[in-house]
């Protein structure tokens, strides 16, 4: 893959994402024109109504969608390097549902401890990742089939957990349903302020992960030839991937397929060098989830489709297409 070209594509995607964000802010029950949006964002707005709509409702939601999309996509790209497997994604491997079970336990059984939701998500995600590793590990590494099978097992286990929790706490369930489906509706500034600091930390660590990801994607033996401690890289990159996925779950619930579809598209566009693949996944993940959320809230208005459901509708067939093409 041509290097200057890959760099240009990454920059172009970032610009496109920002453009899409500005347009998305204008869409909704009250349509706002782009010049008005820019005026409101950078100077005083002409009407107080627009001020409220943009600053309190649309901008936090758009930023949240972008941050979460970026997080999940980076998480998927990292897991794919670490597991040497293009199907590794936080959803399919069970990391997302592991995190969700633990969040749900707090939401339903111990609502007084909501401040521990991010921590619970992280612990649940790590637990799921550990189980997947334990199940999928073979002497010669991890095969695509065993990763998916272990993911199925972990997802089934967590699905059972979620089902059990929903039955015994059925009275409190309605509050958790929106979250479970991966909806960004009515999250507002709280979720944004919760996730933003963690995301910054995750992104900075991801920059340091680029070189290690590039080495480990060549396989254990080559990495160890090059003087790397393979297990240390594998564990640290996995923890970072789980961290990014877990904070996303904590903020807006389960959103599947972003971690699978986005790195795959990014790889087609800029190649498999993580120097380009990781920023590209970040930009594209932000764009994809922004589109899913904006589509979900405008296409069938006044009905609102959670972004997680829209992603599943689009991502499921894409996954089948990958299987059919044998691209793993």
């Amino acid at each position: 893959m041509n290097k200057p070209q890959s760099g240009a594509i990454v920059l172009l995607t970032f610009s496109l994402t920002i453009l899409a964000a500005v347009i998305a802010i204008g869409l909704g029950s009250v349509t706002i024109a782009v010049p008005e949006i820019i005026k409101t964002l950078f100077s005083a707005s002409s009407t107080a109504v627009h001020d409220t709509i943009i600053w309190d409702i649309r901008l936090p939601r758009v930023l949240l969608a972008m941050i979460i999309g970026a997080n999940i996509a980076i998480s998927g790209a990292l897991l794919q390097a670490v597991m040497g497997n293009p199907l590794a994604d936080p959803g399919l491997t069970g990391v997302t549902s592991g995190a969700a079970v633990c969040v749900l336990i707090i939401m339903l059984a111990a609502p007084e401890y909501t401040q521990f939701i991010p921590l619970a998500a992280f612990v649940g995600g790590l637990f799921a990742a550990t189980i997947v590793y334990a199940l999928a590990w073979r002497r010669n590494g991890i095969s695509p089939i065993t990763i998916i099978l272990s993911g199925v097992a972990v997802n089934a286990l967590c699905g059972g957990g979620i089902g059990y929790l929903s039955i015994i706490y059925s009275d409190r369930l309605p509050s958790a349903v929106q979250w479970l489906n991966g909806s960004l509706a009515a999250k507002g500034n709280n979720a944004l302020f919760m996730v933003f600091p963690y995301a910054i930390v995750g992104w900075i660590l991801s920059i340091f992960a680029i070189r290690k990801a590039n080495i480990i994607r060549m396989g254990d033996q080559v990495a160890s030839n090059l003087g790397e401690n393979v297990n240390r890289i594998r564990i640290s990159l996995s923890i970072l991937a789980v961290f990014l996925a877990a904070i996303s779950v904590a903020a807006i619930g389960m959103i599947g397929f972003v971690g699978l579809v986005v790195p795959h598209m990014a790889r087609l566009l800029v190649g498999s060098n993580y120097k380009y693949l990781l920023p590209m996944s970040m930009a594209l993940g932000a764009l994809v989830l922004l589109l899913a959320d904006t589509g979900g809230r405008t296409l069938f208005s006044p009905l609102e489709i959670p972004a997680g459901i829209l992603m599943a509708v689009v991502g499921g067939p894409y996954f089948l297409y990958l299987m059919r093409r044998g691209k793993f």
């Binding site: 893959m1 994607r217 060549m218 396989g219 033996q221 080559v222 030839n225 190649g271 498999s272 060098n273």
Partner: peptide, 14 residues
């Protein structure tokens, strides 16, 4: 030292 195995696979676009 450096060891090469019988079959090595590089990422497809490297």
């Amino acid at each position: 030292m450096c060891m090469l195995s019988q079959k090595n696979q590089a990422p497809s676009d490297m």
